[in-house]
Computed example of a mutant assay.
Amino acid sequence: MTPLVTFAVLIAAITHASWNAIAHGIRDQLLAFTLVGGGGALCGLALAPFTALPAAGAWPYLLASAVIHVVYYVLLMRSFHLGDFGQMYPIARGTAPLVVTVLGAVFVGETPDGWQAAGIALASAGLVGVALWGVRSSRRPRADAPAPVPTGGPPGSQTTDGPPWLALTAAIATGLSIAAYTVVDGLGVRASGTPLGYIAWLMILEGFAVPAYALATRRRTLLTQLRPIARRGLLGGVLSVFAYGLVLWAQTRAPLAPIAALRESSIIVGAAIGALFFKERFGGPRIAAAGLMAAGIGLMLHAG
């Protein structure tokens, strides 16, 4: 974890929280992720001609990652639908580092030393503390939000109430999908020989799935519904490519587990965005948990 790698992952964390906040701020989640996915795919198409084609050994990882990312998008839509951004985002992100540590040790042979493992555990505990304080099952409709569109989107495309355990389950499942694609992409980008080529083709393969579903279900009304939010959603797509591109580059320079843990510092940004822009409570317990997370990251990086 050199200073350059650390800086890149921290920038990725801030950018990731920002695009997630953009997506959460669009009430119709199917429209939001149609634009995020479509924007990412367009970035991939623009980048691909100027990069080398990933090596043959990377393509099984690319295909597997694309499938996992589609599952991730569906679960993320569901968790945003059921809970507050400042809680669902940290739960989803906080689940990943410990799972990545285990998977990295099993499949990649990257076993952290004792201090590093303690730092990852401490950081993850802080993440969960930030997330679980005052879990609520559904976010309140914003006064300026448009009415949801009553069409047949997937879970997460409309706002409904649900029990707290359902919101928590959706967020944890999202975290497990994050851990899965983190390890798959960590292996794939190393086998590709070209981090830029890998991210370009990953965005192409995964990016059109949600837009294709939206087109099939919304048909002629889709363009009309997308027009008022197109700029915000496409910006979210560009930010998502930039954030994950930095992470993939970092995974070619350092072990997976500390990168996964440091990347989840984005939850501090996410919690702050939730408090400032979505008027969600932050409070003393989340501040204490955030300090615990910062201490864990500091220990992890110092040990590394």
Rank of each mutant, 00 (worst) to 15 (best):
S18T: 11
S18E: 05
W19V: 08
N20C: 08
N20P: 06
I22G: 08
A23K: 07
I26F: 02
D28S: 14
D28I: 15
L31F: 14
F33C: 05
T34H: 07
L35S: 05
V36H: 05
G39D: 13
G40I: 10
A41S: 11
L42F: 05
L42I: 13
L42W: 03
C43K: 01
G44M: 02
G44C: 02
A46V: 09
A46M: 06
L47S: 01
A48T: 14
T51A: 03
P54C: 13
P54N: 13
A55P: 07
A55V: 06
G57I: 06
L62M: 15
L62P: 14
S65L: 14
A66K: 06
I68T: 10
V70K: 00
V70N: 00
V71N: 07
V71L: 09
Y73I: 12
L75W: 01
M77I: 07
R78L: 11
H81I: 10
L82R: 01
Y89R: 10
Y89D: 13
Y89P: 11
A92I: 09
R93V: 02
A96Q: 06
A96K: 04
P97S: 03
P97G: 03
P97C: 02
L98A: 13
L98I: 15
L98H: 09
V100R: 00
V100K: 01
V102T: 02
L103T: 00
V106P: 06
V108P: 02
V108S: 00
T111M: 07
P112F: 08
W115M: 14
W115A: 15
W115I: 15
Q116S: 08
Q116L: 13
I120V: 07
A123G: 06
A125I: 09
G126T: 05
L127N: 00
V128K: 02
G129Q: 01
V130E: 00
A131R: 04
W133E: 14
V135R: 06
R139P: 12
R139S: 12
R139M: 09
P141D: 09
R142W: 12
R142P: 13
R142D: 15
D144P: 12
P148C: 12
V149L: 11
V149I: 15
P154I: 15
P154C: 15
